[in-house]
Design a binder for these strands. Sequence first.
RNA 1: GGGCGCUUAGCUCAGUUGGCUAGAGCAUCUCGUUUACACCGAGGGGGUCGGGGGUUCGAAUCCCUCAGCGCCCACCA
Length: 874
Amino acid sequence: MKAPKEALDKAIPKAYTPADVEKRIYDMWMKENCFSPRKTSTGKTFSIVMPPPNVTGNLHLGHAMVMSVQDSLIRHHRMLGDETVWVPGTDHAGIATQLVVENHLRQQGKSRKDFTREGFLVKTWEWVETYKKNITDQLKSLGASADWSRERFTFDPEFNAVVNKVFVDLYNKGLIYKDDYIVNWCSETQTVLSDLEVVATPEESKLYYIRYFVKAADKSVIVATTRPETLLGDVAVAVHPSDKRYKEFIDKTLILPIMNREIRVIADERVDMEFGTGAVKITPGHDPLDYEIGRDHNLQVISVIGKDGKMNKNAGKYAGLEVEQARKNIIEYLDNIGNLEDIEDTVSNVKRCDRTKAIVEPLVSKQWFVKATALAPEVMKAVEAGKTDFIPDRFRKEFSNWMEGMRDWCISRQLWWGHRIPAYYKGNEMIVSENHPTEEGWLQDEDVLDTWFSSALWPFVVFGWPDKTEDMKKFFPTTVLETGRDILFFWVSRMMMMSMALTGEVPFYHVYLDGLVRDEKNQKMSKSKGNGMDPAELQNAYGTDATRLMLLLGTTPGNDLVVSRQKAESYRNFVNKLWNASRFIRMQGEETMPYRELEAYLEKNYAKLNIAQKWILSRFAHVSQAVTEGYATYRMGESGTVLYEATWNEFCDWYIEISKIEVNEHTQAVLQYGMMTLLKLWHPMAPFVTEEIWATYDQEELIINSSWPTIPAKFINDEIEEDFRILIEVVRGIRNVRHERSVAPGKLIPVHFVADVKKDLLVQFEEVLKKLAKLSTMEIHKGRPIIGRKVALIVYPFEIYLPLDDMIDVEAEKARLTKWIAEKEKERRIIQSKLDNKGFIANAPDDVKAAQEKKKQEVEAVLTTMKQQLADIE
RNA sequence: GGGCGCUUAGCUCAGUUGGCUAGAGCAUCUCGUUUACACCGAGGGGGUCGGGGGUUCGAAUCCCUCAGCGCCCACCA
């Protein structure tokens, strides 16, 4: 029943071309509704909420990695038979989106100010709609098997309603409040930022030493500052209470230069005696620490810098100047009046806006806050109790540390794009309400909420919370949250806080954190560096499956991943290998059987299978277990590596090659079963190519809907695996000798085996050995054959002699044997020393001891033979 | 200033609770037009697991220490 080879040859192209199949397959999955949860037999559920990408963002490789990991988990669990759901969506990304839209407007010569708030929002929604399509299309191109019927947007109207409700609830519970506080102000975006959105970087700057005189005395204190312009807002000078230098000054009154204001010297332990002069000027209006010290000492707050980044009316004659200019003028003036003592070069931490890189000015302002300090303890309790764990575990500690030291979370933003704060004002009255008050005269708060406020609700809002929906019951808490480690604090912590506060439960049982994606030079990829590799480009060049494999294999959770075109290429090659392996199989015969029937058939006929067939089935059983285990423990990188090796180095290199030599009535069944098993095991990671190949096997269902392999226990056969390993080594050994002796590739040579045990193995495998090792004749002896000059090698328990009379170089042979013996002797010594060690005998587990014992026997047998051989040759 | 991570073959990395003669891919060298695949096949070379010390019968794996690199947090003006 040989297949019409030429026909198939034409039908199945020699190389896999991803571009031809990916879109078609994805559309088919959509059409067949493959991504919705299905009620199944296991009774288990598996749910993931997709970290919503910024709606205006472009998908980069970091996203691609996160999505690939999630998709493979989802596909795996779907195949396991769990009721599986992956909820997709996008984030309205307040500040980022607003900046993008403003940029577009700028290119058209317009600015936000040319629009009314409503007009600007209309414009923004237009942009968002086009961007959203763009990003979801990219997600789909990656193969994301998310349930698109559930797609959400963090700023859709329903979401907005929930946000309002949550805000009101938390406000009523005192967990949201409005207060004056020193906040981070970005003068470029004209909004406050949370602590997390501010990055401090060391920058060169000057340290100015300024003298403040004591009132009505001939004494003075010198303070050091990097920001002399804030002097105008000074309300005190602080020293450490135990600083002997300043003991006499405490509670004395100083005259603030320029302003000639009377300020007091106070003592506070937060002052660092080592820094500068040990005396620090206190400006509660423009420094977080000063603000706290000021608060504790009941000091006044004087703001001298306005939200526009200019000196304000409190700055006297400097009012209206840019900060930089004011600084210059002030220093000049202080120098003139003799109060400037010194200027020193220094490096200080400058805080900049994470997004715009503009300098962030600390200033006091009335803002809305979430009382994170009250929410954090519940989260920490849950984490300590192990309700949520972290993969890898080290992030648990990092998370807890951060939670512990957290300050309240500033949630108001002076932006237009975002959930507007549901607070309303009339005169001095304020109400917080889900809906706009019906009476006349109430004006809504102008500010919007930090984007992360709504993202924090994502894991339950997408399931219909606050309603008690079926979905909530079934899918919440979600099984695992996977995301980049860079948003552990931004997002993960806030979801935890909100979830504990609102639902009383953790939002997810596992948090899986990815590392960062880096380029070949080990640099973090980013748009600003211009080294970002575009996933779409890689997908086009090498295929989506190859791109995914690159991101999934050889990685460990939490560790950064270096990507390169070279890597993508090698996975493209692998995908092609898979394709061709199947191509070969399909060229052998057109008949196929449903997977399960095939499995049952092989089980029934197991006894009649040959050794190679039993071997590969056993290997599949073990590999399948290892792959499954990898998924279960969130070590998919390992699953992939194991599979890769099994596919290429075992199935393709050995089994397929042997199947060409040793054909029996079960060959087709084993080949097809093996191939289909591989396809199933690969499907979660390489969905497109596996679905495409699967289709050639004429199965009753799509691979995406098929079940995860559970190889019959009957197929496990450790003894056969061991025997087969020996046969592989025999072949390798002979090939090695041939190569070393430059035996012409096609030349057949005779071989003699000495086999005192396991002779059957050689007999059974004779045909295959002859073909694989290019042997003319094969004789199997007991005891030692006498066949003249020969090359000897030993693959325990066999001795192998190749009578290459015309090619034997006696000296070379002696050298080879001597070297080999030396190596074996060394090995024997190591083993012997272990066995002689009474500690080893007493403490090592039995299987370790038995293995050493066995190895010793083997080594000794080998040594005896080789020494004989060496003597012979001489 | 605190906290964390990394250092294994030329490059990129695996290595689960200590039990190997330390693995893979890419690169490199030799050979090969065997009808699945040159996006291939066969064979080889290459590592005292960053240095030092310790625990142990046994350490790439656990502890201490030093060095280099990287990340996170923080109110040194």
